[in-house]
């Protein structure tokens, strides 16, 4: 149970409960604002009935031709609001906006290959691995990690051209993205 609404710029003052979580990165303000300035409808927050921030999703629309798609840049839920289907609701919302407003062919996202919990969740939501990006995550100190680029086709992609089978074996370098 939650109330979905657009993320407001001043929500940045209220998101600590979500962002103090170790896996949720806090970016500089212009990162959030640049998303809000261009894709205000792809950045949504969920609030509990008592008004606490439970989680948020931020995304963008990009690509040319048949690559035109919605992209999930970040999705996060505070620990006490996990396992109640919030991520599911937020992904559906982003997919719906990518489809109906942006008329995209698919939605995609990147996830660490080690993050099996998240990968399993996205598969449940209908995403499949499209390719594996070598060393996509690098924090400078040899902590390189590959990413799965996962995709879910939208109704516009009638022939499901945006996905492939066995995408795990489809290796690409980050510079070729």
């Amino acid at each position: 149970m939650s109330a979905v609404r657009r993320f407001k710029a001043t929500d940045l003052f209220k998101f600590n409960n979500v962002n103090l979580d170790f896996l949720t990165e806090t970016y500089n303000i212009s990162f959030y604002l640049s998303y809000l300035a261009r894709w205000p409808d792809l950045f949504c927050v969920q609030e509990s009935p008592n008004g606490a921030m439970m989680g948020y999703i931020m995304g963008k629309a990009e690509g040319r031709g048949k690559e035109w798609h919605g992209h999930v840049t970040a999705i996060t839920v505070a620990s006490e609001y996990r396992r109640i289907g919030l991520a599911d609701g937020m992904m559906k919302l982003l997919e719906s906006v990518s489809d109906k407003i942006y008329n995209g062919y698919f939605v995609d996202l990147f996830v660490r290959v080690s993050n099996t919990v998240a990968i399993g969740m996205y598969k449940k939501f209908g995403y499949s691995v499209y390719r594996r990006v070598i060393g996509y995550y690098s924090s400078g100190d040899n902590n390189e990690e590959d990413a799965f680029d996962m995709r879910k086709p939208l109704p516009r992609d009638v022939n499901k051209e945006s996905i492939i089978e066995n995408g795990e074996q489809n290796l690409v370098k980050p510079e070729d993205l």
């Binding site: 657009r6 710029a9 604002l33 261009r38 205000p40």
Partner: peptide, 24 residues
Amino acid sequence: ETPEMIVQAFKFTTFSKIQEFVAL
């Protein structure tokens, strides 16, 4: 950064966000 982002919001004509950015 914030003034630049208000500029961005005008460029992309995202009127629903401008007051928020000014407030921030």
